[in-house]
Nucleic acid binder design. Structure first.
Lengths: 187, 187
DNA sequence: GCCCGATGTTCGTCAAGGCGAACGTCCCGA
DNA sequence: TCGGGACGTTCGCCTTGACGAACATCGGGC
């Protein structure tokens, strides 16, 4: 009488395990060994069969180096710029107040909040972070040129950009006293 | 050869289920009924015994209205203000660049990114959101008076505040063209 | 061509999770 | 005082997940 739930978590987990395993570059046999589970179990999990226990999933998460939540529902990045004043779906809940949702949090993601200051000069190059990383930036003051290498965008106060952090990218201030809020999404 | 892993997830899950169930105000019997699992199973889970399967956990997450990740590791809020220029542990990775981690993302949390604009006027009152909500705000331009009722703080450009969103709080602009980045943490 | 190693899959066995029923407890109203 | 109801826990039964061995398949060397 179980039948199907809302969205079958088993399929999602199956795909996640496979995805993460490919990412790390481990063979099924090797991952099973490191996680301390039978490779037959792992095989069934990746095929969508089976209903793993918490301990099993936990062991896999440890072996894969992902925080367990990562195995339960997937991500998806992109590149997006929202200019100040062009915010979508302005929800004016009251006079004197407007707000816009720039980025809904993907399930299982970790988002660390930074504030950064930059002074004009040569661009700060950033190498690719771990796969799945996404960076969100909202400029407070000054101007910034940032984005993946080859796709840099100039941003002013109130402008928002989102881009993959798992590819080389750069930050460059175009004005003095440039301040920005950086949200690093680790998923 | 299993013995104990890094941090026993079973105990965490046990505590989480209990916590969430109390939060929603359901009895063990009722939650078990709504989740479609035996109350004996639920009883053992909350007591730390047992090693639930994904389907079981998923059903509980659905019944509790939490995204499953919530059941695997806990939260903890607070109130904190960081003034512009007083950022901790300035990590100058390169000249012309400084950054500070304002808020490390708690495991399992969801953080939605908003940008809001406010014009001077009466404070925008916000009722308590769902328990576990935490709000983070970094002022871009202008000035803002915000925080839990009775604990409002005045903030200027570059200032950061974090406060619980599950208690009544308010936003009030103190200057025209006030813009701020709001990160809503749903945990 | 042959063998060897590594890959991922399938098959029986066993222990453990999930289930339902019965139990002990507490509280409230008749 | 007694009975009913809701609470959470405990007790056998049975299904099911996890295991290990055997299996099929593919690639590279000698």
């Amino acid at each position: 009488m179980e039948s199907e739930r809302a969205t079958a978590p088993l399929d999602v987990i199956a795909a996640s395990i496979r995805r993460e395993r490919d990412r790390v570059g481990l063979s099924l046999t090797e991952l099973a060994r490191q996680a301390g589970i039978a490779k037959s179990t792992l095989s069934q999990l990746e095929s969508g069969t089976g209903n793993p226990s918490v301990e099993t999933l936990w062991a896999l998460g440890v072996a894969l180096g992902v925080p367990f939540s990562r195995l339960v529902d997937p991500p998806r990045p992109a590149v997006r710029v929202v200019r100040s004043g062009e915010w979508p779906a302005v929800r004016s809940e009251q006079a004197h107040f407007t707000g816009a949702l720039l980025a809904s949090c993907p399930p299982g993601a970790r988002r660390d909040i930074y504030v950064i200051t930059l002074e004009p000069g040569s661009p700060r190059k950033a190498e690719a972070h771990i796969p799945g990383t996404v960076e969100h930036l909202v400029v407070s003051t000054g101007r910034v040129r940032t984005g993946p290498v080859g796709e840099q965008v100039d941003l002013g106060p109130g402008d928002y950009i989102r881009f993959p952090g798992d590819v080389p990218h750069s930050y460059q201030a175009l004005a003095a006293d440039t301040i920005a809020v950086l949200v690093m999404e680790h998923v």
